[in-house]
Design a protein around this nucleic acid. Sequence first.
DNA 1: ATAAAAATATGCTGAAAAACATAAAAACCA
DNA 2: TGGTTTTTATGTTTTTCAGCATATTTTTAT
Lengths: 262, 262
Amino acid sequence: MLKNIKTTKNISPIEQKRIHLQEKFITMTKRQDNSTPSDIIAKLSPISNLLTEEQKAELQASVEIKKYKKNEIMYEEGDVPQYLHCLISGKVKIYKEGVGGRNQIVHIFKPVEFFGFRAYMANENYITSAAAFEPTTLCIIPVTLFEKWLSENLQLANYVIRLCSVEIGILNRHIVSLTQKHLRGRIAESLLFLKETYGMEEDNQTISARFSRADLADLSNMTTSNAIRTLSAFSSENILEVNGRIIKILDEDQLKKISKIG
Amino acid sequence: MLKNIKTTKNISPIEQKRIHLQEKFITMTKRQDNSTPSDIIAKLSPISNLLTEEQKAELQASVEIKKYKKNEIMYEEGDVPQYLHCLISGKVKIYKEGVGGRNQIVHIFKPVEFFGFRAYMANENYITSAAAFEPTTLCIIPVTLFEKWLSENLQLANYVIRLCSVEIGILNRHIVSLTQKHLRGRIAESLLFLKETYGMEEDNQTISARFSRADLADLSNMTTSNAIRTLSAFSSENILEVNGRIIKILDEDQLKKISKIG
DNA sequence: ATAAAAATATGCTGAAAAACATAAAAACCA
DNA sequence: TGGTTTTTATGTTTTTCAGCATATTTTTAT
């Protein structure tokens, strides 16, 4: 009894709010995961809309659904690419192992986007790994089937060319940011990028993503210590309000400025 | 007369050899540039082989030949993409301006490769600039025509998808190298990359490219001073033989090792 | 041919960020 | 529930590299 009272006393209002937000976030995430198989096929519209009737039938026949736990790995560097992966719900990181065991996240995906075909099309084994940030549902389709579709469907092929073109642009920008900006600029850019990708919660300030400091570091090319330090600095400068993994952007203009000047 | 003797005396055997190699290199470069218009169309085979007869006729009707001097700029960041560029002879760099006016070279092209369509396909203005390392000949084709071909030619579209897939892989690898390797590892990698791209001269040691230290620096994400310093170090370690812009790889295994461990 | 400009070489200094260390807080789990 | 592991926080030291200065060499322009 006494212990219980003590525990309750220890939780500050801010902490209570954090726990509340955290639970709401988990609920939101889980809710997205309740799709039935037919729902899921419908969700593949970015691809399936471009397919012929025959190809849609092939999709129906070959698609498989896979669920991944938090931090579970989908494929690793060196693996032979076998499937086109479509992200139905959850969040996925594509990362590459660096020299000192340090990882660099090269892409993050949101529903409904697809990945995992590049290496196959380039005739390589995977040079990156893919893992789930949070509980995630994927559709997987044999990549040979996807290749066949590409070889017979102009619309799909042109869509993929446009996707790749956008991706190359992002990577070009990224190279310069990661190599030339300073710690503060790189973290600022990553936070803005997370906001763009996963959006905000109802308050229009809280980023709809819960990343560990280590993941933020891997995204921003720095050590975990420096990610922690820089977030603390932004917090004490009232640019962010940081509450565990819940990050609220208080002064977006300032953050953009820091991101821009490096 | 006396002066003449003095001048001759000042040129060491090594220097004479350097001048000889330099002149031979310039001759080689110039020779590649003597193509007639019909030769040039023939040289576009990587694309034209994939075109239908009708498309080939359109190519013939629309293609233009452009010559660029050393360091001349083809397009700049912010420009509206208008042409597909095919490199017929010479060497081209694609680069991006960084924060402190420092450039990062994100791609180098050799004949016959094509570029300049990515931004258009991504529906953007150019986010990179293109310039000639040395006297260069290009074919340019209206990018709208290229887009039309893509929308009606499966083979071409699939070829472009494969090209983009390879490119994305290179960029992913590049991000990790440039951010995580040390000076020595980055320069080593750039030199090996130049060797892969432009090949060697007859001696099978000299890289068939003459890059300024500043360009090597822009390729390797470092200051010009550090590119100079590191090349000197490699030279005194007998990994390279450096003679102005002529770089001979003496110990490729060692260079690969340095590139690998960072 | 000669002056001016650009590129290369090298040393020195200081800033930025990694590496290391340690403690506190939070999450996990048997 | 208490103990263990992981994550976050923060201070200190060390390494790497950019920035600057200056001299020399090479290239370019006139």
